[in-house]
Amino acid sequence: MSFLQNSLPYILAGISVGGQYALIAIGYTMVYGILRLINFAHGDVFMAAGMFMVFLSASMPLGAAIPLVLLLTVLLGFLIERAAYKPLRSAPRMSVMISAIGVSYLIQNCALYFTGGLAKVYPQLPWLSDTVTVFGAVTKRVTLITPVLTILLVIGLSLFIKHTKVGIAMRAVSKDFETARLMGIKVNSVISATFIIGSLLAAVGSLLYFTNYASVTPTSGGMPGLKCFVAAVFGGIGSIPGAVIGAFIIGICENIIKGLGWTTFSDAFTFALLIIILLVKPTGLFGEKATDKV
């Protein structure tokens, strides 16, 4: 019993962080599935969503700020794709990746400019930020809401991809870019839709994530971004359920490691996992068989 009481907070935090990572990891896995691009700027879009919230909530009620944050983040994701990735569609993959790194650098520097380099306090969301007690472990309500919300969103997304026209087009484009184009699919709008969905989920993720962490800095998107990419690779890149499961595993392991007192290595663990998975099973847990990773 005492073991449960000692470790429960960490496991709860792990599940919660895992859910937040899952929402970001979906953006990576969808973009990679279609464009074969590691969208290095995705973590910064997530950070930007946090910044939008900080600035908007200062000037308007939360009920108006939250929808506006989602909208702005979606717009940002859409614009990034149009401005930085679309002109390079026929360029080598390396150029697009460099462009993504450039965008990430730009967003971080913009955030640095607007905040003056100071950590911004994230607004308290009523109800979500309240503390609750579960089996003797004290935590914020957001910890309990996150996994539920994540799973609901993932189910919604899966239905969307399976049954709607855009979803079918997305699957077609990720299977074969050229053939999909020949079949009359508007590849560019499908890619835009992918970025819009990815950014929307990242914005929801950022609402949940920063409620737990209480402050946003210009670089606070970098590390979660990389971890979520690892989660996507771990689950098998291109696969949405894979990304979600990978994210939960990484979130939980990371917090258990923190609980054991190895906080320095909680980030390193993620990358060690990445390297092991790439060497042992490069397709990930649920990846497609055909691969050109190795």
Partner: peptide, 22 residues
């Protein structure tokens, strides 16, 4: 690491750099 290609090599080397820092 050198068995990996293009972006996977990139992310793996980046990962090693992060591990080193830790």
């Amino acid at each position: 690491v050198l068995r990996l290609k293009s972006d996977y090599l990139a992310i793996a080397t980046l990962g090693f750099a992060e591990i080193l820092r830790a």
